[in-house]
Amino acid sequence: MVPTIKDVARAAGVSTASVSRVLTNHPATSPEMRERVLAAARELNFRPNAVARSLRSTGTRTVGLVVSDLLNPYFTELARAVEDTARAAGYSVIVGNADEDPAQQDHYIRILLERQVDGLIVVPTVDTSPLLREAAELNHNLVLVDRPADDVDAPTVLADASSAIAELVDHLVAGGRTDPAIIAGPEHVGTARVRLEHFRAALAEHGIALRPERVLHGDFRAASGHDAMAALLAAEPRPDAVFVTNGSMALGVLQLLAEQHAADPLLVPDDIALAVFDDMPWFTLLRPTVTAIAQPTAELGERAMRLLLARINGTDLPDGDALRCRLTVRDSTLPRRSA
């Protein structure tokens, strides 16, 4: 296992902050402290990485943004909000697309740190990231947005979907839907698990158990939504409602429904109700229009950038309460005409 700054601090009997000062040649470091840290680093074969090197210089007026998937319109809007806020403050933004790949995420983080950006905003692809944790421990200017990361001590900007999902379930049950399914995101992604947990808990409030066969996992991409919907429609009996937990997967679901229509017409909402987490502008152009939960995407990006600017300027702002999502009920979840 590659030694970390925590390992060096433990071997030298000092804090990680002391190791950070030595690695960055901070003037407030005694010769004795410096020798202890460097001796421990040599013994462990520790090599200062991009995180440590990036701390030696600041003031580039650039920040880095690493998002999970730029093909997802949600992250495109988020990036735009970050860029608009940064530009207004005199900063430029360099964007990296992790493509939902932890290795690619770390690749971009290293590159951005080596370019000595003044700070980073990251949408974590997984719950655990040693590189992000080390960046936070070295007091790099770091803000997380949309998804949390375990053991990373950094401001985190999140959306709260609980009340909107509860409202959606109330609406579905009131319309006679008692056997719903969910197309959830990857199990290793925190937001995917949270949306599933909220959906299950809201159903339980109505005395409805979410059956295991009604839970399918996609990868937040259109193809996985298509395949998951095909599996649900092949089941006997079919669910009476489907909640798709992101917009990209919903695109695949809608494609499958269009294909299905030629061979075995399936009417929405009479045969099955459809709701989506993520509201898309074109949802109102479809027939039926699509019920959706909208995230406060622009506000998330703006808040994340303002938190980062505060850290760059040497001040700390509170993370603030999670920003609430909003349900918009449209035709795709109306009660069956025979109900």
Rank of each mutant, 00 (worst) to 15 (best):
P102E: 12
R80M: 10
D69N: 13
T85F: 10
H140S: 14
T156W: 02
L168R: 03
S68V: 14
L138G: 10
D127V: 03
L142W: 11
L65K: 10
H107R: 15
S163M: 02
A159T: 12
D127S: 13
A81T: 12
Q105C: 04
I94V: 15
L70C: 02
P102Y: 12
V157P: 01
G96T: 10
R133D: 09
A89V: 09
S163A: 14
A154D: 00
V95S: 03
A86V: 02
S68P: 04
S162G: 12
N139A: 15
Y91Q: 09
D150Y: 02
L113K: 05
N141A: 15
S129G: 06
L131Y: 01
L112G: 04
L172K: 02
D151T: 00
S129I: 01
E100P: 13
N97R: 05
L112F: 13
Y108S: 05
V122L: 09
I165K: 06
R133M: 12
R110M: 04
N97G: 05
L132W: 03
R80Q: 14
S68I: 08
V82A: 10
I121A: 00
L168G: 00
Y91E: 05
V122K: 06
E167Q: 11
P102N: 08
L138Y: 12
G96R: 06
L168Q: 05
R133A: 13
D170H: 09
V95M: 14
F75M: 01
A161R: 00
R115P: 04
D101I: 06
E167C: 02
F75Y: 15
E77D: 14
Y74G: 03
T128V: 13
H107A: 11
Y108F: 15
D99L: 12
Q116F: 01
Y91R: 12
Y74R: 04
A79T: 14
P130W: 08
V93F: 09
Y91N: 08
L112D: 05
D84M: 11
G96F: 05
E83C: 08
V117K: 05
L65E: 07
A103Y: 03
D99Y: 02
D69I: 07
Q104G: 08
N97Q: 05
T76C: 08
V145L: 08
V67I: 15
D170Y: 06
